[in-house]
Amino acid sequence: MYEIACPHCGPRAQTEFTYERTVDAVVDPAADAHTAMQALFTRANPMGLDEEIWRHTYGCRAWMVLTRHRVTHVIEAVKAIGPEALA
């Protein structure tokens, strides 16, 4: 049961969050069909760090990017995304 440091709310229990997909699986709506399907249907799925999109669904509902290790479960970084994070 991870502790995830929501950039907006602070450290919270994992049960408040949902995992969506990896960053490389975010399909650009403007991408051509082949690129889009490649992105949608393949994952690097590394036994190591990956960048993942999570949502603080049962908290502030914001989305964020976690850099998380798939074996140690160490969360190395959490980054806010979404309109609030636009410079």
Binding site: E20, D28, A62, W63
Partner: peptide, 14 residues
């Protein structure tokens, strides 16, 4: 609700 939020916040935050 999740889908709309994803599209709005992740795909088109702009």
């Amino acid at each position: 609700a999740g889908h709309l939020s994803y599209v709005r916040q992740v795909l088109r935050p702009d």
